[in-house]
Computed example of a mutant assay.
Amino acid sequence: MSDYLETLYDGYGQRFIVERLLHEVRTEHQHLVIFQNAVLGKVMALDGVIQTTEADEFIYHEMLTQVPLLAHPAPKRVLIIGGGDGGILREVAKHRGVEHITMVEIDGSVVEMCKEHFPGHSAGAFEDPRLNLVIDDGMNFVANTTERYDVIISDSTDPIGPAEVLFSENFYQACHRCLNDGGVMVAQNGTPFLQLDEVKTTASRMSGLFADWHFYLSAVPTYIGGVMTLAWGSKDVTLRRQGAETLAQRYSDTGIQTRYYTPELHAAAFALPRYVLEAIGKA
């Protein structure tokens, strides 16, 4: 057995015991590694950064998906940027009321590797007839598409390498343009304790753009720093303030089963620690 050391931060990291190396390849865009770990099951890393594990993926994927889809009163058209492992797609596909799903992934080989090694992430959702899978750069897609969406979910890697542009001011502006009236965009935004500058930067870019912008939290063990910040930007100021009762009714009506998400957790997730509120100018 060998070790895998995550290299996202200088001077701080986490170590995984690699029981078995399942796949390693340098794709057109990045270095991809998949290995087996006794605690977390199969683990995927890109360019030295852990992306997903079998054991705890449900937390991240449910919170990044169910929060915007249940906050929106009737989402019909959904755009996923990134998300090549299929976890976000699986959660979106649970919503019978969604009529069309566009997924834009820059690296087609990630999709193929995850279909093979992480079939539970997508749970067959890549075969959903509502899906239009586009292999393209997410920034290029949102800058040029004439389509409009009710919900946009940016499931990107950290803002280094090919994903750096997905945290740019131009990207948020393009997503805002692609949203229908009353639409909402959410995006992975790192762990605030270790990536507070990233949160500040996103706040500054969203603040003058969306009628309502904020962040919400999700605790994902694999992402060191513990708690993830997920960015929220909406054209409708009421969506973030849906009460737990309304959310509970919508959740019940969908018939969806979740392992982490609850309507009560949804409502509470937007309560932020003071140091994060101070960093984004909302204390």
Rank of each mutant, 00 (worst) to 15 (best):
M1I: 14
S2G: 08
D3E: 14
Y4L: 03
T7K: 14
T7S: 14
G13A: 14
Q14M: 11
R15P: 00
V18D: 07
H23N: 06
H23F: 14
H23L: 08
R26D: 13
R26A: 08
E28N: 04
Q30Y: 02
L32G: 01
L32F: 03
L32V: 15
V33L: 08
V33P: 07
N37L: 04
N37T: 03
K42M: 10
V43I: 13
V43Q: 12
M44G: 00
A45C: 10
Q51F: 08
F58C: 12
E62N: 13
P68F: 13
P68D: 11
P68N: 12
H72R: 10
V78W: 05
I81Y: 06
G82S: 07
E91L: 00
V92P: 08
H95P: 10
R96D: 14
E99R: 14
T102R: 10
M103N: 02
V110N: 06
V111Q: 12
C114K: 12
H117P: 00
F118I: 01
G120I: 04
G124E: 07
F126E: 12
P129S: 10
L133V: 00
N140V: 07
F141H: 14
V142L: 10
V142W: 05
A143Y: 06
N144P: 01
T145G: 08
Y149G: 00
V151Y: 11
S154N: 15
S156R: 09
P162K: 02
P162D: 10
A163S: 14
V165E: 14
V165H: 11
S168E: 07
F171S: 11
Y172V: 08
Y172E: 13
H176C: 04
G183I: 08
G183S: 09
V184R: 10
V184D: 10
M185V: 08
V186Q: 08
N189A: 15
D197M: 02
D197C: 00
E198K: 06
T202Y: 09
A203P: 01
S204V: 06
A211L: 10
W213I: 04
W213A: 10
W213V: 03
H214K: 08
S218R: 11
S218E: 05
P221K: 01
T222L: 05
Y223G: 03
I224P: 00
G225L: 04
G225D: 06
L230G: 02
A231T: 01
S234L: 01
V237G: 00
R240G: 11
G243D: 15
A244V: 12
L247A: 07
Y251S: 02
D253N: 11
I256L: 09
I256N: 11
T258C: 11
R259A: 14
Y261N: 14
H266E: 12
F270H: 04
A271D: 06
A279C: 02
